[in-house]
Nucleic acid binder design. Structure first.
Lengths: 215, 215
DNA sequence: TCGCCGCCGAACCGTACCGTACGGTACCAC
DNA sequence: GTGGTACCGTACGGTACGGTTCGGCGGCGA
């Protein structure tokens, strides 16, 4: 692999952080080049020299935030069944916390709002640098669990998507539309526990199938 | 209830259909008042007289489309287990078909892109007139199934959300970001069958719990 | 000390779009 | 015929924003 990817200078990262704050607070409409320059105490000239374009600035914001996504590169071998389950619960809770966060919601709204354009580079960026990383983290965990006989996952991707559905359900969609997490839905720990229980019910260690009852 | 809700005159519905086509094809950016007037062969003056405002036009588009959502008001009593299961599969396939459709994606993108504003009236509109209706349709079905002992659903809303998660998983989010359904994911019938199987596994008729294994 | 470079702040330009105003037309009531 | 209403098409004002240009300033090497 290459060096730890400077990608942007410290000053540029500073500007991108300011821009991110703007878009988190006011949505895309608030992200004018003049506003970014004012908030970051820099000139529009520098913005255009560094990022080339408004779209380039948007892409840089997404890339900047994605670069902060760190996968806890932990050792998944030699896990007991209970430790494996605990890892799944932690993943579930982390996932809900991230998806409900202001930053994630703002960037997803930004990319989705622009996804009508052909190509939709922002959406692709978010998929590849955000969701894909999270999915990969979960998949290696699931594959390790399957290798050690804790679950019967024939296809890690399929299993991951089921896990995701049980954890998130329709909550992300509602949050994206402006609904706030309320009541029991805000208890991410409880939700994480329940969804992992359901997942382990669907993929029991001894079964050969993928949750489909025999018959 | 009131009369079948004229809500808009035929001419206005015609204009709204044109506007909907515009937003489906080109996203929100393509939906300028001038473009709507040109596409619908009407004057901007009429647009503003009828809908008051550009935001009013957006809301009218959503309301117009939502009014076309028809819940098949069918009789859910006296269903055999297999007929109940068939109803669930039909619901699942309908849900996937709707969510993957151009119109649904365009309107969801529109509302999500505007959801940063406080209040987010479009998001609320979509939640109340779109998702809530679909959820209600599923809930009455699930309650009927529970009453007849086909599933063990203590809370219809909880059960519905689990069903939704098993059906949709992370597909809707990926579609919203511009990814196309491809491969096995495009086979909605197969997906519907699998997810209903999983749902029935989690909510078996004889069990008393909500999918959590005893212990 | 001098010139070069990167950057800031501000002014500027062209354009796109919202909202309104106005002239012209078809239709209806009387 | 006459007035009224609803509508179309277009032109216009005002504004906001993306992108460019310019003057000035501090730092830095020679």
């Amino acid at each position: 692999m290459t060096a730890p990817a400077p990608e942007f200078t410290p000053r540029q990262n500073e500007v991108l952080a300011s821009a991110l704050r703007l878009v988190v607070e006011g949505g895309e409409k608030a992200l004018t080049t003049a506003a970014v320059a004012r908030a970051a105490n820099c000139s529009k000239e520098s913005l255009y020299r560094w990022f080339g374009d408004r779209d380039g600035l948007l892409a840089a914001i997404v890339a900047h935030q994605a670069s902060k996504v760190r996968v806890p590169h932990e050792n998944d071998d030699q896990l007991s069944a209970s430790a494996f389950r605990e890892r799944l619960v932690t993943f579930a809770e982390d996932l809900l916390t991230v998806l409900a966060g202001d930053t994630s919601l703002a960037l997803n709204r930004l990319a989705i709002g622009q996804a009508s354009r052909e190509g939709s580079p922002l959406g692709r960026l978010l998929l590849e640098r955000g969701r894909l990383r999270i999915a990969t983290r979960a998949r290696v965990l699931l594959e390790a669990g399957a290798a050690q006989g804790h679950i019967a996952a024939v296809d890690a991707t399929e299993a991951y998507r089921t896990l995701y559905g049980l954890i998130v359900r329709d909550a992300h969609g509602r949050w994206l539309l402006g609904q706030e997490p309320e009541g029991a839905e805000a208890d991410f720990a409880a939700r994480a526990n329940l969804s992992v229980d359901q997942f382990l019910t669907l993929f029991p260690p001894d079964a050969q199938n993928t949750g489909r009852p025999a018959g």
